[in-house]
Amino acid sequence: MNTLVLLTLTGLGLAALYFLIASGLALIFGLMDVLNFAHGAFLTVASYAAWRTAEAVGGGPGLLAALLIGTLTGLALAAVTELLLIRRLYGRPKEQILVTVGLSLAIPALVQSYAGADSRTFPVPDALSGTVGVLGAQVPVNRFLLIGAALAVLVGVHLLLTRTRYGLVVRAGVEDRAMVSALGVDVTRAFTLVFALGGALAGLAGVLGGVYFGSVSPHRGTGLLIFGFVVVIIGGLHSITGVAWAALAVGLVQQYANYYISGGFGDIAVVILLALVILARPTPGREGPLAALRRVTRPPAPRRAIPPGGTA
């Protein structure tokens, strides 16, 4: 029982990280059709900025400053990328992919040349480095920080999308961008906002990832980004809560599989989950899973007898 509690809360912490990454990716892809492969690089740079800040300030205030600096770093990096590069490439998906993939390779390499290939220990304040007993399990306190931050972001993004005019523009833009501009709305401003917001969330994930793993490393962002994309594919682009549920599923499946099946199987289990979701999802013009199940479980229609001399 206490193993299950520990696994679940750890899985939730991981899910929180995935959610922070995937919500930005989903918003950016949904509104702008841009697959942002540089998203993970934003996370990496932010995590190093946060690490530097936390080291310099130290203790609890150090973590708070790191959260702020990390988030702002992600925001600034994303905003600059959008304004200087992505903006010129709207409607040119191949070029966008080349540019963002290029950034996703170049930025971690720059970080590595600056801070070395080895991971650096992220200073975690004493208040967060211990464990707390939950239903008999000793759970690291930082898991609750991650879960709380993800919930706050979920509520915040939900309110932004449903209660503000920007949110209205974003939701409408996900559906039909051209029509939004044909109503007199400058959609490019919403693009910059969404890109910067996604960068800020990636930055926040960078700091929290430092706390969760206890370290920062040059390729952390790239590794986490893959799971971010998986979560986006499972959760879909149309609701932030869908992304949250998908993050939850991926985080928990990964943790449970790693423990109950074998260490390292978690990643494979996530891929299996992804495949199942893709296969089960009804697509227009294709038979849905329930219909297929019904067809399979129905007694087979009488077949024509095999002609004599057949292979049977």
């Binding site: 005019r165 939701r171 409408a172 559906e175 939004v180 149309h238």
Partner: peptide
Amino acid sequence: FGSLTVAENLTL
């Protein structure tokens, strides 16, 4: 915009 309400369509 099909996913938006009538009122939201007008507000936009």
